[in-house]
Design a protein around this nucleic acid. Structure first.
Lengths: 331, 331
DNA sequence: CTGAAAGCGCTTACAG
DNA sequence: CTGAAAGCGCTTACAG
């Protein structure tokens, strides 16, 4: 059998409650006792049983991660590993573990989240996506369970960490305008995703500011986030339209778009896009400008915020949690 | 307070132990009692406290996932989201949760794994990578803790699910040989990763079978798995060498390689590579042949195997667990 | 500064 | 087929 707190207590000649206090480095325990107990813990190779701890203390030090539908092409985006690295970093430093919600469809994902909450498995949840109608988000919110959304939640007063997608797209579009381009197209994505709509808004705003008359057919939306989608679209557009440049809302689509364009056209097409990671650190590799969406910071910030939300909940103070991470155009 | 098993028992007029048995659908309980208890559970909105369950039963229904170092470029590979989907699918169907090991460097990753094992947080571990010297793998193995490696473990007698990388590379190289190419280069990666070495072996084997004399300087190894690395390398090679074709061991490197080559050379270079997902479902998009490494099946198979390993451990029978997933060249 | 006791919410033999 | 009792390994008031 594994070594328990009782074994340590007996060998150290103290009470189990004293051992607990030493483990948590309680300030009321004498240094002498601490040293003695710690020596015994080391000697017996003691590790606390986390299930017992959670049961007794009603805290888990585990955070649940809610992913989008696995069928969603968005899931394939390199955005995710980078976000995870950010979450990971904070988790390791604060001794929180990360647990995944499982399930490929809405029903099983909701089940998984309910299990986590009702089963007292996690202390809080982070949503790695934001979409318009999300029964899972609604459920968690209605339970008043601590959560943070990465992205822009469709419900008011929910803590979130996000890019300022509208401002980003506006800056990017303006960047193209300043380069002298006039007829600038917008390649979107899944309009259920909030960030797509925000980027579209920013794009329109920039055109308006530049006194360029926006036209509905400059926007290509309702697309999957896949390179081949961009590829086909580009071939289509290149032959029939006379755009000067494009704002492309997704990195993968942009990759395909460039390739598709080059396959049928002699002239290069200027494109600006959003990157979730530095695929192109080598300046020679791709000269297109982009904005880094700073997925690492989103992950890091989300978990940091959630830990505050959890603490805040205990203190029952009223605070609003929301944060936009900085961005910058890499030209 | 949350509803407990006692509340349900009282309201249903049975003992708590009976409620437990109903929850686990024990065959010795009468249908009548089951119906009654279930109705009460529904009425009171009862959910079992998973911490209490784990403490009492010594089972968690949680599997730990061990990731490579976050600094590793490999981590950025779309391989991971796809593996996760596979794991996820099995997890959802079998009511197992997935927990991540946190930490960016070796020390904190090892800490995280020790915490999971000693803290009784997980029933088993899946390693999402395989490298030559891995203190974490050594630790877990030495603890005789249930585990499965995705890839080829450097230690004998460890359960694993893997691609047959050597055979794959051999088939791929042979494919190029049959197309009439003779001077075939090999673009590798991190030689600490087992799969790189296996792919190199298969490549050499195919050349040998085709009576093509292999030369050391046909191999470019010790590279990061990044597009820009492929890009630079291609520019370098295209100007100085006269290869007919290449086997490229990584999808990202291959992407950069093609682009880099096209940037300085008039002639296309035939390349065959490994894909972790269908980035190019559209046949027009990229015509290069590839082998799908079937990351989804690797994830699925790994968790299925681990569940068997855990069960097998309880039964204390001796079994060897290892499996290669199928592969196929998409021409 | 430390200890004895009760309790967290389940499960598991044991008994009938 | 069902129940009473003990126990899983911690933590938390309470008392001193």
């Amino acid at each position: 059998m594994a070594v328990t707190i009782k074994d340590v207590a007996k060998k150290a000649g103290v009470a189990p409650s004293t051992v607990t206090r030493v483990i948590h480095d309680s300030s009321i325990i004498s240094q002498k006792t601490k040293d003695k107990v710690r020596a015994v813990m080391e000697e017996l190779n003691y590790y606390p049983n986390l299930n017992a701890r959670s049961l007794a203390s009603k805290k888990n030090s585990i955070i649940g991660l809610v992913f989008p539908d696995a069928t969603d092409a968005f899931y394939q985006n390199p955005f995710f590993p980078t976000v995870m690295r950010g979450l990971n970093e904070v988790g390791a430093n604060s001794n929180y573990s990360l647990q995944l919600t499982t399930g490929n469809d809405l029903t099983s994902r909701l089940n998984s989240v309910q299990r986590m909450i009702h089963g007292r498995q996690v202390d809080g949840l982070i949503f790695l996506y934001a979409r318009k109608n999300d029964p899972i988000l609604e459920f968690v919110h209605q339970q008043k369970f601590p959560l943070v959304v990465i992205g822009k939640p469709a419900i008011e007063n929910i803590p979130f960490v996000n890019n300022n997608n509208q401002q980003m797209a506006q800056d990017m579009t303006q960047y193209l305008v300043e380069k002298g381009y006039n007829k600038i197209g917008f390649i979107g994505g899944d309009p259920e995703q909030q960030f797509i709509n925000d980027r579209l808004l920013g794009y329109k705003e920039a055109l308006s500011n530049a006194n360029i008359e926006f036209q509905e057919d400059w926007v290509y939306n309702d697309l999957s986030f896949l390179p081949e989608v961009g590829y086909e679209l580009a071939q289509h557009i290149a032959k029939e339209q006379d755009f000067d440049a494009f704002v492309v809302a997704d990195q993968f689509v942009a990759t395909g778009f460039k390739e598709g364009w080059n396959a049928v056209s002699e002239t290069e097409i200027p494109v600006i896009t959003f990157h979730s990671f530095h695929m192109h650190e080598n300046a020679n590799f791709s000269s297109d400008p982009y904005v880094n969406i700073n997925a690492h910071e989103l992950g890091k910030g989300a978990l940091e915020m959630l830990l505050e939300v959890i603490q805040n909940q205990e203190e029952e103070t009223e605070r609003v949690f929301q944060r936009y991470v900085d961005h910058e155009i890499i030209g």
